[in-house]
Nucleic acid binder design. Structure first.
Lengths: 106, 106
DNA sequence: CCAACATATAGATAGCTATCGATATGAAAA
DNA sequence: TTTTCATATCGATAGCTATCTATATGTTGG
């Protein structure tokens, strides 16, 4: 009956994930820092739409941002995403053993 | 570069999770078989609304159902839920080690 | 078959949200 | 400071969806 240390709103988490455009954005900023215009360039959506989605992801804690000059660079918060996935699994699928493996055994 | 064996629409998966009422339903049928009327009784929503949500969960593969007499019993598909969580984590947070632990290493 | 019960479907509606164009804000360059 | 570029916010709108009531479908018991 161990309790997880992070607490996260699983509904807000799922809602943040529940859009195709947002998942595309997440894929783009998953493993590198990208600017808003980078995203606009690669997806077929207007810049305000991208900003809108980034705001939702930011509010859910799923992206981090940092200004560099005129640009704002965004990157996915992988740790938070992984925590969210684990929490959903723990909440609803306790019989399944979904783990966030911190240390790799040997 | 190992590929997962299950393929799942992560947008549909996330959309199925992205509603408070559905998460309540999931919690109710997480670890036992419950009838539609059981769910109606415990949540403050009308019966057609519950059927509507169950249909969405069913289409996403997140619940299994089985008729028993007049009733239809629903239960969460924990395996599928866990797979969905893992797939989201694998797709978007490859640096994090979220695993579906099948065997417990003694 | 008919009545009673459980669930599903149909149809309507209100609220939410993804999207856009227009514009404001903020930073750098001239 | 003024211009230019990058992003954020505003306001409007179309499409989606959660919800309800009414009704249909399906199952059991009489």
């Amino acid at each position: 009956m161990k309790k997880v240390t992070f607490v996260l709103d699983t509904v807000e988490f799922a809602k943040a994930l529940a859009d195709e455009t947002r998942q595309k954005i997440m894929a783009l900023c998953c493993c590198e820092m990208v600017s808003v215009s980078d995203i606009v360039e690669k997806l077929d959506v207007a810049q305000p739409t991208v900003s809108h989605h980034l705001k939702i992801l930011k509010n859910a804690g799923l992206v981090k941002s940092e200004r560099r000059g005129k640009q704002v660079l965004y990157t996915l918060n992988q740790e938070r995403l992984a925590q969210g996935c684990c929490q959903v699994a723990e909440d609803f699928a306790p019989s399944q053993r979904v783990k966030l493996v911190v240390e790799v055994p040997e």
